[in-house]
Design a protein around this nucleic acid. Structure first.
Length: 273
DNA sequence: AGTGGCTCCTGAGCGC
DNA sequence: TGCGCTCAGGAGCCAC
């Protein structure tokens, strides 16, 4: 499931291929995937536009077109955006094909949770899902005291807080579990009960885990691929996610697996307090 | 402000 | 082989 490091990897692999390219045609195979906030047809608005920039905010990929339009893409669970330099037939899960001057870009999504949303670039801050996002964890302006401020007084458990995109943007189930393990904090701890020293540990763990995730070009636990269609490698370095019942790589005790905040959560009761 | 449940959707894995 | 079941989950929404 694309979280921050995966979306960043898609952005980086895509940028070298599509920046400056003109979209010369489009084929939409599953219309609900293509949402337009404007009057007019998604296809007509997008075709003949030049891709001028590509960015990321949290788990959202932002593709800026000339003519003042931006495509906001959220991959949810199984979304992919893959660039092909040569003609490529769509597969059964391909929902949108963007034909470029050189090559084509396929948006596909097995579970159909993801969306490509077209909005005027100037209105991007008005899009509810983006405007509510919390701080960007890899931004230089993000500091441990900023995280502490977001977490203080919260009564829900820390796992729920980390998954809450208004608290901090970009963490999903994998990196939230990994960050908590590295920080030695149990996922069910009440958020506001964290000591200042624990907030600093958590802050450092989040930054480290996300940077390592990007260096490994993401986690391909199941479906994730970058824009070249390649897997990431961070799944080889996971300490807890997907390892319930197995031995903790640090202390050897069997890892606990239980639902926390409605999500499957894996942790070590020995290493995390 | 918090939780829990439901919805969207498909494929994998399991028991029989 | 295949049927029916459960599970995986990001986020929006709703009831309480």
């Amino acid at each position: 499931m694309p979280e921050l490091p995966e979306v960043e990897s898609i952005k980086l692999t895509l940028a070298e291929k599509i920046l400056g390219e003109k979209i010369v045609g489009i084929e939409i195979y599953w219309p609900p995937a293509a949402e337009s906030a404007l009057d007019g047809d998604f296809s007509e608005l997008v075709v003949d536009s030049v891709i001028v920039d590509i960015g990321r905010r949290g788990k959202y990929l932002l593709i800026d077109l000339d003519k003042g339009l931006t495509m906001i893409i959220h991959f949810r669970m199984t979304g992919r955006l893959i660039y092909y330099s040569q003609k490529q037939p769509p597969d059964k899960h391909t929902h949108i094909v963007f034909y470029l001057e050189n090559g084509e870009m396929h948006y596909s999504d097995i579970r159909k949770f993801g969306r490509v949303q077209l909005v005027p670039t100037k209105d991007i801050h008005k899009v509810a899902s983006l405007s509510k996002l919390g701080p960007e964890p890899l931004d230089e302006s993000f500091a441990f005291d900023k995280l502490g401020k977001q977490l203080s007084f919260k009564k829900k458990c820390i796992k729920a807080s980390l998954l809450d995109q208004t608290v901090i943007a970009g963490l999903g189930n994998i990196y939230a579990d990994e960050a908590l393990f590295r920080a030695g904090i149990l996922p069910e701890r009440v958020t506001g009960s964290l000591k200042a020293s624990e907030v600093i540990l958590l802050y450092n763990s989040i930054c480290e885990i996300l940077n390592e995730g990007i260096e490994a070009r993401g986690t391909s636990f199941r479906d994730y691929r970058d824009a070249d269609g390649n897997k990431g490698s961070f799944q080889d370095r996971l300490m807890v996610y997907g390892r319930g019942g197995q031995e903790c790589k640090i202390c050897g005790q069997a890892l606990e697996r239980k639902k926390v905040a409605g999500r499957t959560t894996v942790f070590c009761t020995q290493c995390q307090k």
